[in-house]
Structures are given as C-alpha cells and as structure tokens.
Amino acid sequence: MALNTAPNISDPDGFYAELLATHEGLSDDDSIALNARLILILANHIGDRTVLTEALAAASKGDKS
C-alpha cells in the first residue's frame, strides 16, 4: 500500500488544536466548506493518484455511523 497510515505528524496535539482553532466560530455550513477546501489543497499536495484512491477507500471504511 502506498498510503502512509503510520504516525507522521510531529506534535499531533498541537496540530489537532490548530485544526479546531481554524474552525472556531464558523457555522456548520462554513465548516463543511472549509473542510472541502482543505481536502482539495491536501490532495493536490499529495498528487499521487494511487495514494489518493487508497485514502478515499480508507476514509470510506472508517464510516461506522
């Protein structure tokens, strides 16, 4: 598998706090839109089509609700 699912972010707590802070004060719709923009930006950064396909599959399987 080309997708890296091992821990890869230094300072994970700091990253998570920054992620939530970026959403702070937004309406639900605005948060959804921000997430969409973020996904597209990160997807472009990754670029590799195989990785992106595997990421989409991993995210789909994670949906338990």
């Binding site: 821990p7 972010i9 939530l20």
Partner: peptide, 21 residues
C-alpha cells in the same frame, strides 16, 4: 465544544481502530 469538533473527534476515534496514525 462545537459540532465540528465533535465530528473530528469521532473521526479520529473511527480511524484509530484501524490506522496507527
């Protein structure tokens, strides 16, 4: 403390079961 932080929190928990990251 907000809907979106709840969504992210549960996403982390869902992914943590199968993905080390």
């Amino acid at each position: 403390k907000s809907k979106i932080s709840h969504v992210f929190r549960n996403a982390v928990l869902d992914l943590a079961e199968h993905h080390a990251f």
